[in-house]
Design a protein around this nucleic acid. Structure first.
Lengths: 359, 359
DNA sequence: ATGAAAGCGCTAACAT
DNA sequence: ATGTTAGCGCTTTCAT
């Protein structure tokens, strides 16, 4: 090995497979087989294997992924196209889950934020295709139906938090319908007889509102109840605060409320506080999202969580594992776990203490 | 063009540079120069240029980035190593800013979440080095001093939201010190004579607490005031709620408060409400972070924002532009903009109306 | 049980 | 003003 000239720093050349082969006294072919763990099918002697491995280790050999990729037309990377990654913590959780799952198969994640711009989206996808990512995650901030951009049609792709029903492409969605049922069950457990109200418009953009409502109504029906009413408002703090405030001012005295998301829950809690309604003593509350915000409220609000991390993971598994499942087309639904807070009355406590000791 | 056999779908081969060259009747070299916009220095005739471009367009030619990369030891990607991307919305904003800046130079972003595990971090970096990313962004959730992992020493790298003082490596940090001064100024404008209190421990992990405090004290001093006191608590909602509650219960009647972050502000506001203190009529409030949470509080809290998106952008510019600025070693400080809420008293209104019309 | 040789698609010296 | 040639580092078919 020649030394660099004494001017300037040594520009270390990376160790190549050939370097290893030469040092170990074998051909690159042999070295390649051994280092890729295919030596058994090739019947290479134990001693040679050991020698090559040792040399590789000593030299600190690391394969050049571009060279390998050029040969195999793969990259060990997945591309993730998302409309919004800066808004809320949802994208972060999805990314986190997807990243973890990708790591488990030695893959890296390339990301791109489109900001909802089709032009930008197209360019992003094209560049990722050019670099030969092994597959795409196509994610949206809000759960909804989409039409997959044309450039992605010919790619291996899994939709996350969205579906393209027409295409039958694999997709991963939160199970909002069942989530709605869970909400009903939780309130039933807390305030058995009570009328149930919903805060938040059903027809907010996206699938969530409709599905949660469906599940809620169905579960209520199963125990012979009906939805007592909806306080319509946009799914944000200020709207909920205002709408619930007006509702209470008009004389409402709710005992069981479902909030369409945690921001709505925050506005609702603010309005309750302003009207002297105590949670959960006077009114029980359950919400959706499972964000940190729910924990921060007084009392912490029980929330049915959007399982973004799990969705990210699941999507990557779909992408990597299962040989393109026989295009059954039905979305993979991920259950929404309950993040328990203190916003649900303890039915046992209010019904009397016959059944359990005090806590 | 030959058709595929009638069994199975057509496996379209990608158009290569050679395809274009052949179709245009030139050599790959010529085509390469033209399509890379270097035809002028090579003195290639206008007609040839036009012809090649047309053919490339017609064939839908797209360069194979791995092939190019193998040749140039380049990838047009940056690697971003972050400890936590799922926690809070900060990582999302940084990613978003970094992504936007990277896009502007045709670069893609490869991300990796280490979860604070050095082992995982090392592997992530190694894999990114193997794929020959053109540079690294090394980011932390909490602003702090770090020691750059050894594997990254030899790489082009910019630290984001952290510094490695010993190394003199380029880094980007929020200007928390000046942010502290801004807080003092805002309160001075709102309740000129009032004693100023801080909620939140100064020695929370990370640089932010100390710097904000420094700036605050300095700015107070500049107008002949002192910090009236600190309500020490962890930087989260529950701690702040509890600590401020106890403080008020002991008889405190603050008129000007700085909260160390928006979660602390939330707890503080909750405690104020519980004690009948109105914001901003009774007490003025300013906070740090500039998160959505601040907007959601009643009233919205004025917050000095962590400029994560700008930091991400800046870091990418540092990485791509400036030929490794003469290792001056001082961090690039990004200003923290004020996100105005309604938590600051209007001093003019309370002092009388001589100076301005009512709004 | 191992090696020679070809080639992935591109760029860049070096010819003309 | 354009073409020839070599080679980036790896995998893989085919020989031996």
């Amino acid at each position: 090995v020649s030394h660099s000239r004494h001017t300037g720093p040594t520009q270390e050349r990376r160790v190549t497979l050939t370097d290893v082969a030469v040092q170990a006294g074998v051909s690159p072919t042999t070295a390649s087989y051994i280092l890729n763990g295919r030596s058994s099918q090739m019947r290479i002697s134990q001693t040679t294997q050991q020698r090559v491995r040792t040399v590789a280790e000593r030299l600190g050999y690391r394969p050049n992924r571009q060279a390998r990729g050029l040969r195999t037309a793969t990259t060990a990377t997945y591309g993730m196209i998302s409309d919004f990654v800066a808004t809320g913590q949802f994208a972060g959780h999805m990314l986190s889950g997807a990243n973890a799952a990708a790591r488990a198969t030695q893959h890296l994640l390339v990301i791109g934020e489109t900001e909802g711009d089709p032009e930008s989206e197209m360019r992003l996808v094209e560049e990722m295709v050019d670099m030969q990512v092994d597959g795409f995650l196509y994610a949206t901030l809000v759960a909804k139906e989409v039409t997959l951009p044309a450039v992605l049609r010919s790619q291996r792709v899994v939709l996350v938090n969205c579906t393209d029903p027409a295409s039958g492409l694999p997709s991963v969605l939160p199970d909002d319908r069942r989530g709605g049922m869970t909400a009903a069950d939780l309130l039933h457990g807390a305030v058995p007889g009570a009328d149930v109200f919903v805060v938040g418009r059903e027809d907010e953009p996206g699938l969530a509102g409709r599905l949660r409502m469906e599940g809620l109504v169905e579960a209520l029906g199963a125990t012979g109840r009906r939805l007592a009413g909806v306080v319509p408002c946009a799914w944000d703090v200020a709207s909920a605060h205002q709408a619930v405030g007006a509702w209470l001012a008009s004389g409402a005295t709710p005992r069981a409320v479902v909030c369409m998301n945690d921001r709505v829950a925050m506005g609702t809690v603010q309005a309750f506080a302003a009207h002297g309604l105590r949670v959960p003593a006077d009114v029980s509350l359950v919400s959706f999202d499972g964000s940190e915000l729910a924990e921060w409220l007084r009392p912490p609000v029980s929330s049915i969580a959007l399982p973004h991390a799990t969705m990210g993971e699941t999507a990557v598994h779909l992408l990597s594992g299962a040989r393109r499942a026989p295009g059954d087309g039905r979305p993979t639904l991920v259950p929404m776990p309950v993040r328990a807070g203190g916003s649900l009355a303890d039915a046992r406590a209010s019904r009397g203490r016959e059944s359990s000791a005090m806590v």
